[in-house]
Amino acid sequence: MTSTRVTPAPAEPAERPGRSPAPRRRGRAERRPRILIAVTALFFALLYLPIGVVALYSFNAKKSLTVFGGFSLRWYRAFLHDDVLISSLGTSLKISLAAMAGSVLLGVALAIGLVRSRSRLGSLAGLIMLVPLITPEIVTGVASMLLFKGLGVTLSTGTVMLAEITFSVSYVTVILRSRVAALNPEVEEAAMDLGATRWQAVRLVTLPALLPAVLASAVLIFALVFDDFVLAYFTTGVDPQPLPVRIYSAIRFGVRPTVNAVGTLMLAGSVALIALALFIPRLFGRKGGLDILSGS
């Protein structure tokens, strides 16, 4: 045992004489190299200028794709009266909604299963699940098409849906997995302790805790699938075609400014959805909806 006698604490070091100035503001002295600013600006210009041009010419009063002849909504009106494009838009919305519902349902279940399963098979499944994320989409597209053909399935909107669901499950699972892992397992046990069955515990306690991440991933999947071209191109039937595929076919026979209007609308929609996906977790007042996107 040691003595508990208290020794006087050493005197506080005397304050330094006031010769040292206030701490320098960090970064103030550093010159920002202009070249880096220029490179960054060039990067963003190359990235967004073409898109800007598309958006600008969607409001062109003239039919020209090179000369701007005043502001007009004529190409938007043309789009609204183009039955083929409108039906393609409807098809794309249907595919996106189906892919969203299907992949979220499977992805949430898979995420919970992968986190809870302690077996080797579980961790193997967790690894396999990541493969679609790194497989070139064209490979997935061709493979899906060959599979459907091999099985004698006629390509249609339904086959696009199946392919998109398969592809999207990985995203949902990756997003949800970290959230499930962060859940306190005692909370589900508490629900069962209070009389809930296993399923009630998941429905009443686990799913509400996951809701922000579920909604955020649903929005993300909708946006990703809606403007997906490659997978849709290989797995769609002839009619109706998803919007991106329809636009691609239309361009082959000459670009009409209507395409600019459609592109601009799709862009606006996607931006709105991504913003929503980022915003949803904040709506619930907690963190961790789309950690991947927000980078936190």
């Binding site: 046990e189 508490a190 069962m192 209070l194 009443l204 306690v205």
Partner: peptide, 16 residues
Amino acid sequence: PNRRNVNTVFQSYALF
């Protein structure tokens, strides 16, 4: 657990 007449106060409280 849901069919036993006992209840638990968990260490982490495990509130909903």
